[in-house]
Write a protein that binds this DNA or RNA. Structure first.
Lengths: 232, 232
DNA sequence: CAAATACAATCTGTATACAGCTTGTATTTG
DNA sequence: CAAATACAAGCTGTATACAGATTGTATTTG
């Protein structure tokens, strides 16, 4: 999943230290989140060092960041393994995300700009474009990612934004794993429904409504999950 | 402040890797939080490497963790500097912490045990003991830290607990900096009041009430801060 | 044959030398 | 004298060799 979805950028000539770190970190984070590296995958420091044309040191720095984000577990003498999430933690995280979504509009809300409207319209257009491409879960995942990014832009409270992003990154890939179980129609129509709700709230310049829609949709996902687990 | 409050433990003989990391990380984190290293302090990798009898490598690992926690800023060619917090971020963080405190009792609440009651009683006893030791802000800070730790133990939702701790660590020292401005009587009586409120909620096995008390007290701190800033 | 044991392969953790960046200072230059 | 410049000191970033930990496997031993 997602193999062809992202092209890793080549390093520019004058790349500074932190830019290189960000490049490698974002690459690996996205590979994990988009399931190029599924849970259980053992990441090799030396192999990645060769691929990114650096030594082990910067790779290790990235690994420790990924561990802090909850995406890998580093074990001495064993290796660095992409984490899985137990259902209890998954549910707790979604419960919390649901609450944080409600806060989005209540803590220092931002003003909706024309740029924001352009962004949501573009995302909706992309979702409609793949509506009939049954089973295109890769692009659906990218759309979900961009939706989260847009909602981040609409979150005025900085710490809240950071934490919402962190929790999203932690559980997004688990969600992506479950997506196919729901079937394409349910998945894409749910995503489009959420996007249109969000857009209506944005059109009214009502961030509070946007947050409540998001919260409701997270609840809907939890319900779907519950049904899926009972049904399997 | 806090110089004599904490004794760094000696490394045991059979110390494993991650234990060493935790030891150094907690030492430096506490030194920053308890203002042994006030904002603006430049931390030296080589000096700390000498002190902890390791090479620069583990110290760098700790520095990157501290940077992720928001306690230091690492700048290439310059140094690693203990951060300060601007008032906007400080207020945003408190607004968020206030909301998270309310959630404590609502998301998977835990059962209060006799151990928990013993802990809160011990903290209250310590607070009463220093009640007449005017200006003993160091011990007051330690009491505030242990209060936070107890509330963490009462938070059943794991991600919520982690995030509440993170936000506390980020802003605690700023709060400690401001404490003396409020005067000893206000500071110690406020702390004791909060502790007794928390205890009453715990005695009723009502985590929701505990969270609401905590939220209210965070609001009270914000109000004090506002007055202090207007008055200065 | 089964169980304990020794070992080798492979991984992360650490130490250290060196490269690159930033900044204050001394020097040069108009 | 003032401003631009060259430089040196000190910091973090990187590369790499080596140490320590873990685990699967082959060997030994009863």
């Amino acid at each position: 999943m997602g193999k062809g979805a992202k092209v890793d950028t080549f390093p520019p000539e004058d790349e500074t230290g932190s830019a290189r770190f960000d490049r490698i970190y974002c690459s690996l984070r996205d590979r994990i989140c988009l399931l190029d590296y599924p849970p259980g995958t053992v990441l090799s420091e030396v192999a990645l060092a060769r691929e990114f044309e650096v030594s082990r040191t910067p790779i290790r720095r990235v690994f420790h960041r990924l561990e802090f984000m909850g995406l890998v577990q580093i074990r001495n003498g064993v290796g660095t393994i992409v984490t899985d999430i137990d259902l209890k933690t998954f549910k707790e995280t979604y419960d919390l995300r649901k609450r944080l979504a409600e806060m989005m509009g209540e803590l220092s809300p931002v003003e909706i700009t024309a740029t924001h409207m352009t962004q949501i319209d573009l995302i909706i257009a992309r979702a409609r474009e793949i509506e009939t491409h049954r089973g295109n879960y890769d692009d659906l995942a990218l759309i979900a990612n961009d939706t989260q990014r847009l909602l981040s832009d609409l979150t005025g409270n900085t710490p809240l934004r950071e934490i919402a992003e962190l929790l999203y990154i932690r559980v997004a890939r688990i969600w992506f794993t479950l997506l196919p179980q729901f079937g394409w129609d349910e998945a894409i129509s749910g995503q489009l429904h959420e996007l249109r709700e969000i857009r209506s709230g944005m059109a009214d310049n009502d961030i509070r409504a946007v947050g409540q829609y998001r919260s409701k949709d997270l609840q809907r996902m939890m319900n779907l999950l519950g049904r899926s687990l009972v049904g399997s």
